[in-house]
Write a protein that binds this DNA or RNA. Structure first.
Lengths: 191, 191
DNA sequence: ACAATTTTGGAGCGATCGCTCCCGTATGGC
DNA sequence: GCCATACGGGAGCGATCGCTCCAAAATTGT
């Protein structure tokens, strides 16, 4: 019926995600996007409506990929605290200085754009749930204190993750971040 | 010898700080700044050279005011854990959705601008040192475990603060943040 | 009062912003 | 083959960007 598009939408969204991740939403121009995605503006605007539309797609893509990676890492067998430490280490082991797209977006756009906010909150929820599932397992197996306040511990660990990703974005020494992670995991078991 | 300027530089920087704080660096235009500061562009550029110059001044101003406030709160007498909790609560008790200028800046500009980075790092150091001083006092008075790994605890608490400020910026429920703070303080004493 | 100096007020620079429209082209169903 | 449809390519829209320059106004030392 019509000429098929010459680009893979998923691939384009993935590359756009990388650019928004590094540069932020406001600082990323549509021409910059066009160059990075090898996509003319007419195609970009027909496919994604506008810059914000592409950004929302990027947020969705980020959540989907991060979520699957997080779940994969968390379903691994092994000592709960080691799994947790590896997971946290992986969280801050991104390409240097990228931080987390969701954290960057939450601080850049704050609570201004409700549609963006819904996405950042959904992404946060993925992390939170992944943590809860792991801690619950730890309590079941006795690797974590039975009297652990699960909700509070999840909340605190989640907050710690956000802080770690800010620090990673800020270029803090990976060794220091690793030490912080070690201590956080140790504290969790202390109760 | 010459006509005196009609604006108070400190006041102008303070107001610019508020605007950068809410909107971020990139999204804040010089005309917007001019309107908020009641300052014509010619005056602005003569006084601060350019937009970035004013932003650097804003970062300095923020650090100075926040630092003095933090030190004031931390020199208060009283139980260490209560002082810490009050301080953390104050940290996230900003005007809703503002978060922390330094955290917002670190995630927005990352490690791109070395001059900015020096400032964010200096501001982080203020927080870190304030925490260290308080925890040290807690160890001295016996309010905190004697075997506390001071450096690690400071690092983790500092990371938690960053996370809390991200969450405040993201519009999370203040009650949840308060609960997170309570738990963090409790964990600190557990060792 | 006068000259020197620095201010305010504002027009306007080139560049870039997000976005739209048009055109020639390639691909589908009939 | 033919028309409808969506495509890639690109010019260009109005608006805003950061920034500069200049004239009029205001304050000082002499």
């Amino acid at each position: 019926m019509a000429r098929p598009r010459e680009f893979d939408e998923q691939d384009v969204v993935a590359r756009a995600t990388g650019l928004f991740w590094r540069r932020g939403y406001t600082a990323t121009g549509v021409r910059e996007l066009g160059a990075e995605l090898e996509l003319k503006q007419s195609s970009l605007y027909r496919a994604f409506h506008d810059k914000r539309g592409l950004f929302l797609r990027a947020l969705d893509h980020y959540r989907a990929t991060e979520s699957s990676q997080a779940e994969e890492l968390l379903e691994r067998p092994g000592p709960v605290r080691e799994v947790l430490r590896d997971w946290l280490t992986c969280m801050v082991g991104e390409e240097a200085g990228r931080g987390c797209l969701v954290v960057n977006t939450a601080t850049e756009l704050g609570a201004t754009d409700p549609e963006v906010r819904r996405r950042t909150e959904a992404a946060f929820e993925v992390t939170r749930r992944a943590l809860e599932s792991l801690l619950r397992r730890g309590c079941r197996t006795g690797e974590l204190p039975a009297g652990l306040d699960l909700d509070a511990a999840v909340d605190l660990l989640f907050t710690t993750v956000l802080g770690l990703r800010v620090r990673e974005r800020a270029g803090h020494d990976p060794a220091r971040l690793a030490a912080t992670i070690d201590y956080a995991v140790r504290m969790l078991a202390a109760q």
